[in-house]
């Protein structure tokens, strides 16, 4: 009994850390621009596919394609911001809401067109197998992906707190007009945040590709859960997204184990609803 409890908590943490990384990218974009990136799950899928193709065509292990995924998604984020999102930023609210939705549909269907709806998997990644630590089985690729997610999340945190650019992003997040008055180039901050947010989900995609199946619609559930995490943690709060990601990971596995797997997402979404009801700004939002 206690063995399975420990195992389930570990499993919850493993998926939770990854959720955190995905959600941090999303919350950053929201915090700075007040735009919900509906294409976030599709960016995750692109990260996974980039990693898959680098492995299949050039034999590059997903572990080493992490910087490439980050770079490619950063660039994609910049371009999408520059040519689409920035155009509607001053437009009506509805346009801001639907622009990323359109991007999402476009990316998912383009992926079906180019890569077919088939399922792929990276067959023999460098990291595979299981560690047995006492009563707990730890999947090596999952453990590395989770540890990597924590490291990347921490780096983002440091970047925002310690560098001038990071502080400019936080300042814009707090009050755009004041930031502008203080001489911060908010347009550049916007582009940078969109790029970084996309790069983070690209990294998550590379991690996930080490052990998860890959196909054009893979981002759907991950995207949905990351919205939940962002709302739970507090819109725009990096720390909030980190904590909420772990929380949701654990609630999901323990809820599934002790209560009923059929309702594990119902529990997750109920938790989100309750939070929105009693604390609309989220756990760590302001």
């Amino acid at each position: 009994m206690y063995e399975q409890l420990a195992q389930q908590i570990v499993n919850g943490l493993l998926i939770g850390f990854l959720y955190s990384l995905i959600a941090i990218g999303l919350t950053m974009i929201w915090g700075v621009m007040n735009i919900i990136n509906f294409a976030h799950g599709d960016f995750l899928m692109l990260g996974m596919f980039i990693s898959f193709w680098l492995y299949t065509l050039y034999g590059l292990d997903p572990l080493f394609s992490i910087p490439i995924c980050a770079g490619a998604l950063f660039l994609l984020g910049l371009l999408i911001y520059r040519f689409l999102v920035s155009k509607v930023m001053t437009g009506p609210g509805l346009a801001q809401l639907v622009v990323t939705f359109g991007v999402s549909i476009f990316i998912a269907n383009a992926a079906v067109y180019f890569w077919t709806p088939d399922f792929r998997m990276i067959q023999n990644p460098l990291l595979s197998g299981t560690w047995t630590l006492g009563a707990v089985d730890l999947s090596i690729p999952k453990a590395i992906a989770s540890a990597g997610s924590v490291v990347v999340s921490f780096l983002v945190f440091l970047f925002l707190r310690k560098t001038k650019t990071g502080k400019a992003i936080l300042a814009t997040e707090m009050n755009r007009d004041s930031a502008l008055l203080m001489g911060i180039n908010t347009e550049r901050v916007n582009a940078l945040s969109f790029g970084i947010g996309s790069a983070l989900v690209g990294i998550a995609g590379a991690f996930l590709s080490m052990y998860y199946y890959i196909y054009p619609q893979v981002g759907g559930t991950f995207g949905l859960i990351s919205f939940c995490i962002v709302a739970l943690g507090g819109f725009g709060s990096i720390e909030g997204a980190f904590v909420a990601g772990i929380l949701i990971g654990i609630v999901q596995t323990l809820g599934g184990y002790f209560f009923d797997p059929a309702y594990k997402y119902a529990i997750v979404f109920a938790m989100y609803l309750v939070t929105v009801w009693i604390r609309p700004q989220g756990l760590l939002g302001w």
Binding site: Q4, Q8, N11, T253, G256, Y257, P261, K264
Partner: peptide
Amino acid sequence: DISYTANATDVTSEVGRLIR
């Protein structure tokens, strides 16, 4: 007797129950 949602991102709790 275990039911679950088909688009789950993670099924470790389901398998935990099976092991039990």
